[in-house]
Design a protein around this nucleic acid. Structure first.
Length: 270
DNA sequence: ACCGGAGCCTGTTAGC
DNA sequence: TGCTAACAGGCTCCGG
């Protein structure tokens, strides 16, 4: 479900509700998702009593900075976070519940159970291998150039590889490549300087647009308050198979690359 | 370094 | 209508 813009939207929504709150309990009914501790009890023992100092995003990870540790969560395909009154009816898909000192709860709902939770003292234990944050100042045209230059890999799988540029997923990869007019099957090292520059701006444009529109509610994603985002109304190719390209009217094609469905305009993208 | 495939889960959708 | 297969916005592990 969520890529960088969706995760950013989640963080912005839950941040004010978590800041300066102290965690009074943690419950979990699916221990497999806990990546830092052997079981829920040991995580609970460590997290209870810690206060939320900050909430931020790194790539697709949500980082809750606590007094002593970092609570780092990943929503993967179907994860959803909300902060609600402890009285609010819950659902069988809520597998982690963090109770706060004002009788509210941070709930991690996750139908497919792919999402992860970790409580670590050094955030690099989880975030250490991530590549550039694409909207940050250190992600430059030159940076993208160096990523692309020596690699024979196809562009789409390269953009999905979080160790180079972190935060792009299937929607925004397809959208960025369309905007840059680059075929997703293109070998990275064959991109011209002009194409790299176009792609650089396209990546930043589509991600920023996704944030401004509070995410794309194409499948299951909704904001923490349950409302839809708006980015689904601005996509050019994603899940528009056989529909006419908005630029040239050619039917959008769908293929599989690296096990992921990939949408592109066979005429606009070279 | 990179590629493909299997696996992790469960609900929804497409196709016969 | 009902069953089955494919599919889903992510990522990791394995073998080659």
């Amino acid at each position: 479900m969520p890529e960088l813009p969706e995760v950013e939207t989640v963080v912005r929504a839950i941040r004010p509700k978590l800041l300066n709150r102290t965690i009074t309990n943690y419950e979990n009914d699916w221990g497999n998702r806990i990546k830092s501790h052997a079981d829920a009890a040991s995580l609970r023992a460590q997290i209870v009593g810690q206060m939320v100092v900050d909430v931020r995003r790194r790539a697709k990870f949500i980082v809750v900075v606590l007094t002593h540790d970092y609570l780092i969560m990943h929503l993967r395909m179907s994860g959803h976070l909300s902060v609600v009154s402890a009285e609010t009816p819950t659902s069988k898909y809520v597998h982690d519940t963090f109770t706060l000192d004002n009788s509210t709860q941070l709930r991690f709902r996750d139908t497919r159970k792919f999402g992860t939770v970790a409580l670590v003292s050094d955030e690099n234990q989880v975030l250490g291998k991530l590549g550039f944050e694409p909207l940050s100042a250190d992600f430059t045209i030159a940076a993208l150039q160096s990523i692309v230059a020596s690699r024979r890999r196809q562009m789409k799988p390269l953009l999905l590889d979080q160790s180079h540029v972190a935060g792009i997923g299937n929607i925004y990869a397809d959208e960025a490549l369309f905007e840059a007019q680059v075929d997703p099957r293109r070998q990275a090292s064959t991109l011209t300087d002009a194409e790299i520059e176009r792609l650089y701006h396209a990546i930043r444009n589509v991600l920023q647009q996704g944030i401004d529109r509070e995410g794309a509610s194409i499948s299951t994603y909704v904001k923490p308050d349950g409302q839809k985002g708006d980015m689904q109304n601005a996509v050019n190719v994603f899940r528009r198979t056989d529909a006419p390209c908005y630029v040239c009217s050619t039917p959008i094609e769908r293929i599989k690359l690296a096990q992921r469905s990939t949408h592109f305009c066979p005429v606009c993208q070279k």
